[in-house]
């Protein structure tokens, strides 16, 4: 299967400082990939390398199965983190200008833009000056300018910043539907809940290196440390005794329901959930036994902390 974007051993240094250190990953067609990493991890340089703004020192970038070219970049929709609009231009006029820079004919651009303005409910702002619109509205216009040409690959850097929850939800829906229509999406963000909600795959970058990558579900599964949430009716002491050597008890707390308790446990290595369920049944009234996979945020923090413990000199 041809990948939408394939990065292989990408390297870049600025003034002797290594910013990208052999980065490799790929984005499959129609998928949403989350590019994560702390500040200064090299995300922006990576994106700028893909967009041709920065030239990598080594490595290859393949777009839609073909080696990187300027023409290939024209098929990418790019929403940078630092984004803006010309204040003295009208909204519609400006959107047409950006679409033309992406190679669209004016007529075609106007038609597509009208559709998108309607879809994101900003059609009444076409003839208004940018200086007259709100920040959230400007964000919507910028998003429209990114998707107007129907890109094969969409690179969104912090796409939800500046949006209220309602509009953020609307953008998420649009991103999902674009992916469903076959657009490959690379999403760079610090907003972990949106990563969990949107991303099929994640790539975690730290100090210019990929420290974690894979399918979101798989990563969370791999990061599972045996945590379970147990909801039961019964005595705490009985519960603890029944748990015995099968699992660690991290804590028990009451629930709004009278006599019902919620416990956080971690199964000991090699213990199957069924063994614990068997041990608990008959001792307490077991209501729920839920597997608690780690949040993306936890995986992110753990991976970055783990990297921190490795001395700088060994990381390259």
């Amino acid at each position: 299967m041809t990948t939408a974007l394939h990065i292989d051993d990408l390297r870049k240094s600025f003034g002797g400082q290594c910013v990208l250190d052999g980065v490799s990953f790929e984005v499959t067609p129609g998928s949403i990939m989350g590019l994560l990493g702390p500040n200064g991890a090299g995300k922006s340089t990576l994106i700028r390398s893909i967009m041709g703004i920065v030239t990598p020192d080594a490595g290859t970038i393949t777009l839609g199965g073909k080696p990187w070219t300027r023409e290939g970049v024209q098929r990418i929709g790019y929403l940078p983190e630092e984004r803006g609009l010309y204040k003295d231009m009208k909204v519609g006029e400006q959107a047409v200008y950006f679409a033309q820079l992406k190679g669209m004919e004016k007529k075609e651009a106007v038609k597509s833009l009208r559709h998108w303005f309607e879809r994101l409910e900003v059609e009444g702002w076409w003839d208004r000056k940018v200086s007259d619109i709100s920040k959230g509205m400007a964000q919507k216009i910028q998003f429209i300018c990114t998707v107007v040409q129907g890109p094969e690959l969409l690179i969104l850097d912090e796409p939800l910043s500046g949006f209220d929850p309602i509009n953020a939800r609307r953008i998420i829906d649009v991103v999902r539907s674009l992916a469903a229509e076959g657009t490959s999406i690379m999403l760079s963000t610090h907003d972990m809940p949106s990563v969990e909600r949107l991303c099929d795959h994640v790539v975690l970058l730290n100090r210019g290196r990929v420290v974690l990558q894979g399918a979101s579900d798989q990563l969370r599964e791999e990061g599972w440390n045996g945590s379970q949430e147990v909801v039961f009716r019964g005595n705490d002491l009985t519960f603890t005794n029944a748990l015995g050597a099968w699992a660690h008890l991290d804590g028990i707390e009451p629930t709004p329901q009278e006599g019902v308790r919620k416990a956080a446990i971690r199964l000991r290595e090699g213990v199957a959930p069924g063994s614990v369920i068997n041990a608990l049944q008959g001792q307490v009234e077991l209501q729920e036994f839920i597997k608690v996979r780690p949040a993306m945020e936890r995986l992110f923090i753990d991976a970055v902390e783990k990297e921190k413990s490795i001395p700088e000199s060994t990381v390259s």
């Binding site: 703004i53 024209q74 940078p80 984004r83 803006g84 609009l85 010309y86 204040k87 992406k102």
Partner: peptide
């Protein structure tokens, strides 16, 4: 102005 209003990154991504 293009630098200060952050239009430039979109521009250089589209045009050399």
């Amino acid at each position: 102005e293009e630098k200060s209003n952050h239009v430039v990154e979109v521009l250089v991504a589209a045009v050399r």
